[in-house]
Nucleic acid binder design. Sequence first.
RNA 1: GGCGACGUAGCCAAGUGGUAAGGCAGCGGUCUGCAAAAUCGCUAUUCAUCGGUUCGAAUCCGGUCGUCGCCUCCA
Length: 463
Amino acid sequence: MNLRLYNTLNNKTENFKEIKKGKIGLYTCGPTVYDFAHIGNFRSYVFEDLFKRYLIYLGYNVKHIMNITDIDDKTIKKSNELGVDINEITEKYLQEFFKNINTLNILQADIYPKATEHIKEMVELIEKLENNGYAYKKENSVYFKIEKFKGYGKLANILKENLKTGVIGDSDEYDKEDVQDFVLWKGKKEGEPYWKTKYGEGRPGWHIECSAMSMKYLGNHFDIHMGGVDNIFPHHENEIAQAECATGEKFVNFWIHCQHLIVNNQKMSKSLGNYYTLEDLIQKGYKPMAIRYLLLSTHYRKTLNFTFEGLERAIRSLNRINDFIFSLKGLKSNKGESEDISNIIKQNETRFRENMNNDLNISGALGVFFDFLHQINLKLKELKTKDIENVLAYIKRINSVIGIIKEEKSIPLEGEIEKKIKIRENARKAKDYKLADSIREELKEKGIILIDTSDVVRWKSVK
RNA sequence: GGCGACGUAGCCAAGUGGUAAGGCAGCGGUCUGCAAAAUCGCUAUUCAUCGGUUCGAAUCCGGUCGUCGCCUCCA
């Protein structure tokens, strides 16, 4: 079964086909580095990561570009409010962003181009638009004339005449010919950073950034562009307009958009007190992998309702996977390999892939994976040495896609704890269960969980 | 006003024409000194609702009710 993806461009699920065999150009809209990213942002990033990991799993060579918006209204506003240089602000939150990405086990992009380092490319793009008759200067700014572009609105499925006019955005600050037109280059304003270019002193509009940088690194025509649904209009619509009017070529084949996250059925907002950054959740004691699992486990085109109850459920679901691996690693086995187990793996992987191929149906795919755990649990005692290896290798393959299983670090036990375990063992042998249980309870409080098996005592760390 | 999404068990969530996956929680067994994990059984005659098409509908069509998003800040 082929990989099928829902393409916002025509609102249909289509067979995926790459432009250049085996290679994929992927562009994802990155953060505006003016503040900590919130869990809604990470829902998108985690989904994009899942998708990218799956492409890699399928054997594609993926070139992934994620832009960094480090010049825009918000970064400027923050800089002015705090009286701190804008670069200091953006650098700080860029580092925080990278830290968060790492915490959530999100693979790094190949390149993180910054807007401020691509002014030249943006100006060149504006130049092309001007030459082709799609851009006009007014006062000190440059605008895109959407009336000239017939395809305008095709992504968002919006008719030009239905666009609300006036009152919003820049319409009264800048002097456009038509309120629907969007800005390519913003003339210099007092107290704002600016660049000297052929269009005068000023700074780039937001949309031009993504068009310029994506084409620089991926070419005029590339495979996949992703982002949150809110970006469909106007951002991605404008990107298409800029790129296609400048090059005359089709810009992107597949537009994939991730739905939003809401909290307790309400839009996340600071005023409602339901606004969470990753840091907030981690400080509450939630583990990154549980957060990742939660963000990941709902299909990307469905609104995800974030609740702490859901997060608790995610923890317990993850426990099932981790406990399984734990039991597997503690097994004593005989040499050999059984065909039975190899077949289960093969069949399960096929089903996993079928679900993922179906527009990245992660819920279905996870269901398949839990089926696998169950099937193997039933045969745990019959597993041979090679079977265990095969099962672990399969889990590793699955995890290369979902990325929710953290490699267990074998933390050495402190001597004192080891001593306590021995005392408890002796107590158990002497049937002094009162003492044994109190030691078990004591260690549990220290984060060490003891598990009695028929021959040895095993332990695991809560962390 | 225009465009669009969604409504499946206590909770989360697959299934998109062939008779309701999976996870969590709950109850009752097995295993265990007791636990933990695992395992077995039970837990939706029914998919918001009303009608239609069909041999057959959660799935297709139409109406109704409800929730939500977008229409130049936004992942």
